[in-house]
Design a protein around this nucleic acid. Structure first.
Lengths: 331, 331
DNA sequence: CTGAAAGCGCTTACAG
DNA sequence: CTGAAAGCGCTTACAG
């Protein structure tokens, strides 16, 4: 403390309001009945003392922290930014506190993040990536709520909220084929999640076109990599006529590079993004992309947490918020 | 708990290792001496039981939570994204846990975020925007570490880490004038922080060019607003020859719109961004912008927290990490 | 180098 | 509708 003033405790409030600490607790948490007049005295005392209850102390008894650990890959400029923002906002609105971790694609870092979140006794974990086996087992035995977001795995640890990357991959193949493109190139991170999409794309594509799509695996699908990747693309023989990018940022970068090299979009090269970030609709040309409903996932996460808190049964352990392919000018 | 298994407590570890809880605590926190052999027994017991100490319970006595509240404006796609990432990473590495809040430019939301962070007994607050008077007073009396980041105010509540927006504004005026531009337009949010820059720009500009710069105040300096703002710019008479944008995203958008309208950059319209995001260096044309050193701020924040924890005196309550104007192709 | 005891600030049955 | 008591899981002097 910089100054001598102590923080007020619940006992101080109780004394001032001439009630017991238990009553103050009940009033604050709206648990149990408090007579109207009593409540008013308590309220007055709280205001007078600027009392802010210590949530951690309370959690010790109640076994609920309302702390939610959010683990997202560190992907500045990707749709995960929007996702984290929406999620944190939804959590905050609902009275939860989000503790955020940004992780590289690195199991060790994920493990240590989860470790500290467990030490904080987080009520729930929101994960985004594919979860390594060891961590899966660990979380499974801890009795916490685990929400896997984005991709819906066959067997969720607990609850999965997201979309079906396999269905999307196939649908993208159809979309591209229907629009008459014949030499697709897919640029995406080498992870497991995009992998599902790519696999499904490849499979459906082979059925439709009887050829193989080309893949370019990258570290991360980011704007900064567009130059190098456009160069690689341009030198391919035959040259792709449509490129499906792992993010809108990358798609925008590819488009900029293509135009700079004198290629007309979409006639000489079509470009498809991922994420429907604010870039997509307002780019020139506007970007055809996939919308992934970050807000809806955020809302669904909060709903699930709410139900868990209320001890309600959760009917479905897989919640599919869907996606949509948005056809714009670039493809 | 989903299954009957209970989490191990420090008492369980103590019993298994045949020591007292106090010794386990000392071993874990490296506070006080523990004989090597004893320590090894403790370690074995911890591993055996998968013991994760409850940090909240510990904080109750130790009065330190190692929780840091980070409040940033909600500005998807701006340099604040990078800032939050860098800061959270630095904090996590140093053993702190970050609780993040995204706030609109809205005092009420800021207040409620601070309220919940106080309820969590956060050791420190990292704020980004200008702080309303009421909140300033509130935090001042709480005895927590308060770090104001980005702008360095004349009288920090506690500690300020960032840069001198006033100096930057003046330097930008000089930069623009030296390069021969004569009709600058500044597009930025209507907040207090950009306001300082703009004021200083205007002042210096009047000295240099003996004319007034033009201002366009916007809700937020984002990519999506570029179309509308470019239209406004294009219709101005006389038309600006250089536009200074509040973010790289907006600058990129303006550049795209300008090129789409057939204007050559920088000859017919020069564009300057803010933030040196990954977009800037890789845009075509590459964007002249201001680098704001997010990583350094993150590091400095952690250093300050470390010193506070160790009860060290902090020599300077204003830490200037500087900035730099990066001249590229667009201006 | 180690332990017994007290206490951090709440919430939760239990009793009335 | 309200209170007294116990206890959540740690850490911190204090004593040895």
């Amino acid at each position: 403390m910089k100054n001598g003033r102590q923080r007020a405790r619940i006992a101080d409030v109780a004394k001032l309001a001439k009630v017991s600490p238990a009553t103050v607790s009940r009033y604050i948490n709206k648990s149990g009945f408090v007579a109207r007049a009593t409540g008013e005295r308590v309220k007055k005392a709280i205001d007078k003392l600027d009392f802010v209850p210590d949530l951690a102390a309370g959690s010790l008894t109640s076994r609920r922290t309302r702390l939610v650990a959010v683990l997202t890959p560190r992907l500045a400029g990707s749709f995960f930014n929007t996702f984290v923002e929406e999620l944190v906002l939804a959590l905050t609105d609902a009275g939860y506190t989000a503790i955020t971790y940004f992780i590289e694609i690195d199991d060790k870092q994920m493990e240590s993040s989860i470790q500290t979140a467990l030490a904080r006794r987080a009520d729930a974990f929101v994960l985004t990536g594919p979860v390594p086996e060891g961590i899966k087992k660990r979380l499974g035995t801890e009795g916490v709520t685990v929400i896997e977001s984005w991709n819906i795995p066959d067997e969720p640890i607990d609850i999965a909220i997201g979309m079906d990357n396999t269905a999307l991959g196939a649908e993208l193949a159809e979309f591209v084929h229907t629009r008459g493109y014949r030499r697709p190139l897919l640029i995406d991170a080498a992870g497991k999640r995009p992998g599902l999409r790519q696999l499904a794309f490849a499979e459906r594509w082979k059925e439709l076109a009887e050829t193989e799509p080309t893949f370019l695996k990258v570290d991360r699908p980011r704007f900064i990599h567009a130059r190098a990747q456009f160069r690689a693309l341009r030198d391919m023989d035959p040259r792709p006529d449509v490129v499906l990018c792992g993010s809108d940022g990358l798609a925008q970068g590819i488009a900029i590079e293509a135009m700079h090299a004198g290629l007309a979009i979409p006639d000489q090269l079509a470009v498809i993004g991922f994420g429907d970030s604010e870039i997509a609709a307002n780019m020139r040309p506007s970007l055809t992309t996939v919308s992934i409903k970050a807000e809806e996932i955020g809302r669904a996460v909060v709903e699930v947490l709410q139900k868990r808190l209320d001890q309600e049964e959760i009917a479905e352990n897989k919640i599919d918020v869907g996606y949509s392919i948005l056809a714009r000018e670039s493809a």
